[in-house]
């Protein structure tokens, strides 16, 4: 556990020293300032557009950080040969993968938290916040989504090049987010293989609560939160298991 945590926490330093995250922070702040000052037909008190676009940018920027970062973790380590001194230490291959995943999650979580906090400040300053529980649920679900995406990206990166991994990860994410709910009827036409394919795909659409925040819907009941969290955790565990299994077979 200690080894895993050490690998993970040192990864955090990369994102803050590389400074890409600050560029997104600046972009987000500029965007939010621009949005706040937009005048639509001299109508005051508009807030939903700000929530929609602001929150959309928060999610998008988090994706821009999470996917490329997760995609390069394993490949770059092998390419730069930094993996040799690491695996020469008493580190199992599973600890390596777990450490990389935890690091990716910490980075994704830190970036998203920073962006979300900025958005939250702007939102409450506009004077039309939704319930705090809903903000918290949205935050938690987004973190689960980013964790799932990180695990998926790491799994893909063990089998593919960096650019293929990034492209495929983005494709899967956007297709499932937009069309995941509609796939059921399509896949069910193919009987058992269709059912398997439907359930194997990562259902990112479960974790997007932006509409709830934008339109002030009520918070989710506890059973929904529990089920979604359980789905994410099980899926992540399976992905990490197969990632470690594939990684264990690799020669360096």
């Amino acid at each position: 556990m200690k080894t895993t945590v050490l690998i993970a926490t040192n990864l955090m330093k990369e994102i803050f020293r590389k400074k890409d995250i600050y560029v997104f922070v600046v972009l987000l702040v500029i965007l939010l300032i621009y949005l706040i000052n937009m005048n639509f037909f001299d109508i005051g008190g508009l807030s939903r557009y700000l929530k929609e676009i602001g929150l959309g940018m928060v999610y998008l920027f988090s994706l821009f950080i999470t996917v490329p970062f997760s995609a390069k973790l394993v490949g770059e380590e092998i390419q730069n040969k930094t993996i040799y001194p690491l695996l020469a230490k008493p580190v199992t291959r599973f600890q390596f993968i777990a450490g990389k995943f935890l690091g990716a999650l910490l980075v994704a979580g830190a970036s998203f938290s920073l962006f979300y906090f900025i958005f939250y400040l702007v939102d409450i300053s506009k004077g039309t916040p939704v319930g705090f529980i809903l903000y918290l649920e949205t935050y938690a679900f987004a973190i689960l989504m980013l964790a799932l995406l990180s695990a998926l990206t790491i799994f893909l990166s063990i089998h593919m090049t960096f650019s293929t991994t990034v492209t495929l990860a983005y494709l899967i994410y956007f297709i499932m987010s937009w069309f995941g709910a509609s796939f059921r009827d399509y896949f069910y036409n193919f009987s058992i293989p269709g059912y398997i394919a439907y359930y194997l795909l990562p259902h990112f659409e479960f974790f997007d609560l932006r509409d709830r925040v934008v339109h002030s819907w009520p918070a989710l009941p506890a059973w929904v939160v529990g089920c979604a969290a359980a789905y994410a955790l099980i899926y992540i565990s399976v992905l990490l298991y197969f990632s470690a299994f594939a990684f264990k077979k690799k020669w360096f």
């Binding site: 040192n10 330093k13 990369e14 020293r17 590389k18 730069n80 040969k81 930094t82 040799y84 001194p85 020469a88 230490k89 008493p90 580190v91 199992t92």
Partner: peptide, 20 residues
């Protein structure tokens, strides 16, 4: 893993994490 607890290894090409 126990085998690697008592060894130290210096690789031919020294590359380490640039951000540390």
């Amino acid at each position: 893993v126990c085998a690697r607890k008592r060894i130290g290894y210096m690789p031919e090409i020294a590359n380490y994490y640039w951000y540390l």
